[in-house]
C-alpha cells in the first residue's frame, strides 16, 4: 500500500507541512489569507472580482444594528473574517415580509444577532481571537452547474505552486453537507482535468461516486464554465500574497462569472483523492522547470503563460 502511494506521488500531511507549507509559505504572510477581509481588499486593489461586501460588524453594537443595515437585500452570506474550514458561515434569504429563512426554515432576527456576536467573540476564529463578521452578497450557482448542486453553491479549488496552477477540483454541496462545499462534511469532490476543464473522477466521503446522490446526475465529464478565467483569477490572486503553496477557491457566479472566494495557505490533500492522482509529480515538475526553490520564481511570467505551463505539467503527469 505504502509503496503504491509513493509511486502515485501522493503527498501526506507531514510532507505537505515540511516541504511545502513550511518551506514555501512565510509565516508572516499568513494573515493576508487567513483574514478574508484582508484578502478581499487585496483582490479589489488588484482588480480581481470578489463577492460584494454588504456590511462588516466588528463590535457587538454593530451586531445589533446588522438586521437594519441588511434591509432590502433578498439574500446574503454571513461569515467570520478569520474562520477556517467553512465554520460559522450562514446563508440567509429574506422572505417577502422581511423575515429570514435559513435552509428554507424561518430564522429569527435574534438568532442572526446572536450568531454575529459569536463570530465577533472569536468562536470560529483560528485561536479564538476577536474577529469581525462579514456580510457578503450570496453568489448564484452557474446555470450549467445548477443540476449538479441544488443545495448550495459549488466552488473550484485550485492548487497553485510557485505561481503555477497544478491541480484543481470542484466541490459540489449535497443535502448531506448541508449545502456547504466542504468535503469532510459530505460534499462531493470532483477532480478536474485542467487541460480541458472537465471533471474526471469524483469522491464522496472518501468513496468513489459517479452520480450526485441528490439529483442522480452524472458528476463526471462535466465542463466547468469559464474554466480558463477561473485559473487566471486564481493565479492572479495568489501573486501578491508571496505564498508559494496556496489553495485558491473560485466560484463561477451565474451573473458575474468567476469570483475569488478565498485563499488558503494550508490547503488540504483530498484534492489528490478527487483527482485520483498525487501532487508530487506536478510539484516536482514545477521545480524541475524553474530550478531550486531558492532560485528565481516564475511569478514574473505572464499569467496566460503560467496557466499553459500548469496545463502542460498536468498533461505530462496524467499521461
Amino acid at each position: 500500500m505504502w509503496s503504491r502511494f509513493t509511486k502515485m506521488g501522493l503527498v501526506g500531511i507531514n510532507r505537505r507541512n515540511a516541504d511545502f507549507t513550511l518551506r514555501m509559505n512565510e509565516r508572516s504572510r499568513y494573515p493576508l489569507v487567513d483574514n478574508k477581509l484582508a484578502t478581499k481588499q487585496m483582490c479589489i486593489r488588484e482588480g480581481i472580482p470578489v463577492p460584494q461586501l454588504l456590511a462588516i460588524a466588528e463590535l457587538h453594537v454593530e451586531a445589533r444594528r446588522l438586521p437594519d443595515r441588511l434591509r432590502g437585500y433578498d439574500s446574503f452570506v454571513l461569515k467570520p473574517a478569520r474562520g477556517a474550514m467553512g465554520n460559522g458561515i450562514l446563508v440567509v434569504r429574506t422572505d417577502p415580509d422581511g423575515g429570514y429563512l435559513r435552509g428554507g426554515r424561518p430564522f429569527a432576527r435574534e438568532d442572526l444577532i446572536y450568531h454575529t456576536a459569536g463570530i465577533i467573540s472569536g468562536l470560529y476564529a483560528l485561536a479564538g481571537h476577536r474577529d469581525a463578521a462579514l456580510v457578503e452578497e450570496r453568489l448564484e450557482t452557474h446555470l450549467l452547474l445548477r443540476s449538479l448542486s441544488p443545495d448550495g453553491v459549488p466552488d473550484v479549488r485550485i492548487i497553485i505552486y510557485r505561481g503555477i496552477p497544478v491541480m484543481a477540483m470542484i466541490r459540489l454541496p449535497t443535502a448531506q453537507s448541508g449545502g456547504r462545499a466542504n468535503l469532510h462534511q459530505g460534499a462531493i469532490g470532483a477532480g478536474i482535468d485542467i487541460t480541458r476543464g472537465r471533471t474526471t473522477h469524483a469522491v464522496l466521503r472518501n468513496r468513489r461516486v459517479f452520480r450526485h446522490p441528490d439529483t442522480d446526475e452524472s458528476v463526471l465529464d462535466v465542463a466547468i464554465p469559464e474554466f480558463g478565467r477561473v485559473l487566471e483569477i486564481a493565479v492572479r490572486a495568489t501573486d501578491p500574497t508571496g505564498l508559494g503553496y496556496v489553495g485558491a477557491d473560485v466560484v463561477v457566479d451565474a451573473v458575474r462569472g468567476p469570483v475569488l472566494l478565498e485563499l488558503n495557505a494550508r490547503p488540504g490533500l483530498a484534492i489528490q483523492v478527487a483527482n485520483r492522482a498525487g501532487l508530487m509529480p506536478r510539484l516536482a515538475a514545477v521545480d524541475e522547470r524553474f530550478g531550486p526553490v531558492d532560485g528565481p520564481w516564475p511569478g514574473t511570467l505572464p499569467v496566460e503563460e503560467r496557466v499553459a505551463i500548469g496545463q502542460d505539467i498536468a498533461k505530462e503527469a496524467m499521461a
Binding site: 500500500m1 505504502w2 503504491r4 502511494f5 502515485m8 501522493l10 501526506g12 500531511i13 507531514n14 510532507r15 515540511a18 516541504d19 469522491v203 472518501n206 468513496r207 468513489r208 490533500l269 489528490q272 483523492v273 485520483r276
Partner: peptide
Amino acid sequence: YTGYRVSELFRFRTLL
C-alpha cells in the same frame, strides 16, 4: 519524518 501517517493509509485507500 515526511512519509505517510497511518491514518492517511486509510484516507487514501480508495485510490487503490
